[in-house]
């Protein structure tokens, strides 16, 4: 079992994607199946960017064994008021500033769900927790 933790700062656009890059390079070292690797990379990147744009910061944790890979994205709020709406493709609350940077096309959460084998989301005002998992069978 391998466990890793990464901190994500609030509105830290300068470092956007760095954690996903580290996770991607770790998974390449493990030598996962390329198609699976790509699904994980895309989902992880979307989720990391979501945290940077929308949250007050938080933490990404990774846990992996020979059967599955679990990624948890936990932030410190402010929470998603309407999760159902947020899951609708094209719907976005990204700020003007975020859109200027090319973020906020409204495809983040639906895309993550599409990539992952398991997708769970819980959100309250004190924070959002997205859990995604992938089957790691050969």
């Amino acid at each position: 079992m391998i466990e890793q933790r990464y901190a994500i700062g609030h509105a830290d656009y300068a470092n956007a994607g760095k954690v996903s890059s580290q996770i991607k390079s770790f998974l390449k070292q493990i030598g996962l199946d390329p198609t699976l690797l790509r699904r994980i990379a895309v989902a992880c990147y979307e989720a990391e960017i979501n945290m940077i744009i929308h949250s007050y910061g938080g933490e990404i944790t990774l846990a992996m064994d020979e059967n599955s890979l679990d990624l948890n994205f936990k932030d410190n709020g402010p929470g998603i008021p309407d999760v159902e709406k947020a899951m609708t493709p094209g719907w976005s609350t990204a700020s003007e500033k975020a859109r200027e940077f090319g973020f906020g096309a409204g495809m983040g959460l639906p895309n993550i769900k599409r990539m992952a084998d398991t997708f769970e989301i819980q959100s309250t005002q004190s924070g959002t927790h997205v859990h995604i998992a992938f089957k790691v069978n050969e």
């Binding site: 079992m1 493990i30 030598g31 992996m64 020979e66 050969e138």
Partner: peptide
């Protein structure tokens, strides 16, 4: 196997 590779990584 994936198990061996994880151990090796560790």
């Amino acid at each position: 196997s994936i198990q061996e590779r994880i151990l090796e990584y560790a």
